[in-house]
Write a protein that binds this DNA or RNA. Structure first.
Lengths: 191, 191
DNA sequence: ACGGTTCTTGACCATGACGTCAAGTAACGC
DNA sequence: GCGTTACTTGACGTCATGGTCAAGAACCGT
C-alpha cells in the first residue's frame, strides 16, 4: 500500500509524499474536514494535484489514516489490555479514548464514524468497538459496572464525547478531563 | 415591545406579524440558525423585508424569543420549584432542561448562548443559571449531590447536552433520555 | 384619483467551500 | 537534445449562505 503504483514519474512520487506529509500535519491539527486547499498549500502543490493523485478527500484520508491515528488507537487498546483489574481496565480505555478525542481532532473524526465510505477507517472502528465490548463485559462480570450498560451505550458515550470535543475549542483540557470522571462515575455500581 | 412603532403602514404591519409567525414556526423546528430565506419564504415575503424590518437574524430572534422559548424555560423552572425534595428538585430541573434541548432546537440554541449580542436571550440565560445554582446548592445541602459540583459544572453539563442534542438528529428520544440517567447518576453521592 | 411617502422586491455582491479540465510544464527514453 | 507522455496548474463552474440597495409597488391622506 505504501509503495504506490509501479511506475510513477519522479516529480509525481515526490508530490505524493509531500502531500501525505502535509495531510498528516494539517489533518492532525484541524481534523479531517479541513479544506483540501489547506493541505495543498502546506504541500506546496495545487489542489488539482491532490484530486488527481488521491481522488479526493476520501482517498487522501485512506492514504494517511494509518499513520495518522491507527497507531494511537491501537496503542490505547494495548495499554488498556495491560491493566489487570477489569473495571479499571474498562475505565482506562474509556478515559484514554476520550482524551484522544480531545487531543486529536482527526482521531475524533474517525471515532465519530464521520467518514462513511472508507474501508480502513471502518475496520479500525470495528476493532475498537469489539475491544470495548470485551472490556465492558469483563468489567460487568467483575461487578464494577452497571449491568444495564450495553456495548451500544459505550459507543454512544464515545460518540457524545466526540461531538463535545469537537465543539470544545476554548474549553481548557483540565475541565474536560474533570467532567469525564463525573461521567465514569455514573457507570459504576459502587461509589 | 409587542406594539412596534406608533405608525406603520398596513402592509408593513401585516408583514411584521407574518414574519413573526413564520419565524416562530421555522425557528421552532429548525433552530435559530436556519437560513433566513426559509423564514422569508414561509412568511411569503422576500429576505430583504426581514432585514429591513428586524435588522437581521439577531433582531428577529429578539422579537420572537419570548413567545418561542421563554415560556418553556420559565415553566420548567416553575415546575421544578414545586418539587419538595431538594435533590429531586435539582434532578427534575436538569432532566427537563435536557429534554427541552432535545425537543426544541431553538431553546437549545438559547441555552447554548449561541446568540452573543441579544439582551432578552442573555437575561433568560442569566435567570436560568441563577435558579440552577440555587437548586444545586440546596441539593448539596441535603447531601444528595456531590459537593465538588459547581454551578459552572451545571452550566457545562447543559452546554454539553445541548451540543449533543444538536447532533442527535437521528438518535431516538428514548435512548437520549436513558443516557441522561447515567449522567445524573454520576452527580449523586448516594447510589 | 393622484402625489408623495413608505415598503418591498429580487437581482446583486461577497465568501468559502468542492470538484473539473484544457492548457501549460516537466521528466524520461532515446 | 528532443519529442512524447505524464503530470501539474489555476482559473472556472457550482452551490449555499449572508447581507445590501436601487428601482418599482403599495398605501394613505387629501
Amino acid at each position: 500500500m505504501t509503495t504506490e503504483s509501479p511506475r510513477l514519474r519522479a516529480d509525481a512520487r515526490r508530490n505524493v509524499e509531500g502531500i501525505r506529509a502535509a495531510a498528516l500535519d494539517v489533518f492532525r491539527t484541524q481534523g479531517l474536514n479541513c479544506p483540501l486547499d489547506e493541505v495543498a498549500r502546506a504541500a506546496g502543490v495545487s489542489k488539482g494535484t491532490i484530486y488527481h493523485r488521491f481522488g479526493g478527500r476520501q482517498g487522501l484520508i485512506d492514504a494517511v489514516v494509518e499513520d495518522l491515528v491507527a497507531e494511537r488507537i491501537r496503542g490505547i487498546i494495548a495499554a488498556a489490555t495491560e491493566v489487570p483489574d477489569p473495571v479499571e481496565r474498562f475505565e482506562t480505555y474509556l478515559r484514554q479514548i476520550w482524551l484522544l478525542q480531545y487531543d486529536e481532532p482527526a482521531a475524533n473524526d474517525v471515532l465519530l464514524r464521520a467518514l462513511p465510505g472508507s474501508a480502513p477507517v471502518a475496520a479500525l472502528c470495528e476493532h475498537a468497538s469489539t475491544m470495548a465490548a470485551g472490556f465492558l463485559a469483563e468489567a460487568q462480570a467483575a461487578g464494577g459496572i452497571r449491568e444495564d450498560l450495553t456495548p451500544d451505550d459505550v459507543y454512544l458515550l464515545i460518540w457524545e464525547r466526540g461531538i463535545i470535543a469537537r465543539a470544545c475549542d476554548q474549553q481548557p483540557r483540565e475541565g474536560y478531563r474533570r467532567r469525564l470522571e463525573f461521567t465514569l462515575r455514573g457507570l459504576r455500581t459502587t461509589t
